[in-house]
Design a protein around this nucleic acid. Sequence first.
DNA 1: TTCATTTATCGTAATATTGCAATAAACAAT
DNA 2: ATTGTTTATTGCAATATTACGATAAATGAA
Lengths: 110, 110
Amino acid sequence: MGLTKSEMFTRSQNELAGIAKVLGHPARIAILQEIIKSKSCICGDLVQEVGLAQPTISQHLKELKNIGLIKGDIEGTRVCYCINTKKWEEVKQLFHSFFDTHIPMNDDCC
Amino acid sequence: MGLTKSEMFTRSQNELAGIAKVLGHPARIAILQEIIKSKSCICGDLVQEVGLAQPTISQHLKELKNIGLIKGDIEGTRVCYCINTKKWEEVKQLFHSFFDTHIPMNDDCC
DNA sequence: TTCATTTATCGTAATATTGCAATAAACAAT
DNA sequence: ATTGTTTATTGCAATATTACGATAAATGAA
């Protein structure tokens, strides 16, 4: 089969996993870092910098846009991508909350 | 093809993406939360709680163990899983560092 | 208009992931 | 030794992801 219904899990579990999944590819991490680094946000330069073919980069950008982490501004034939800082903060907070859940000490094992 | 060589990316890009990938499934998020919630760490109870077949849970546990987020203690026929707090803190810090990179304001677009 | 530039989309091949039934392996209890 | 319990592994089918060539779509420049 290979399909788990999302109804099996809570909304927040699906949300966090969905975002983590998009972050789960080094090219997309590289794209985000490159957008941040190049203060003025970049476009097809990502193809040069990341080293994947243009359609591939475009596809990764689409996924990052889908979860709202980046925005794209059309400027003539070019598209200027940049971080959506509002969403960036939200996602930061999401991971923060997840990892800050207190881990109780365990005497029984481990 | 469908394969990007990991040599294309930095060590830390691959590391972060690799961990995010494992977190990128709601069942694995649910498993982590359940382990945390059940103070005394649990075993095959996860099958009951998460609602997937035993081999599926076992497989997800394996992936979580691979990145070191959980440990498994064999206790007779049972295996007691719990959070590897040391690694947990490391991963928390990893995401923290990633999301805390300063996002420069952009006047050009977006 | 015609040509060059840039990005998105389509189509497709290669690969990876997911889920589970069947089964093995390890142990406890009788 | 046999039985029951628990977990890991194997094998496989269904699906998803990834990468890229080809192509379309949109714009700017000549």
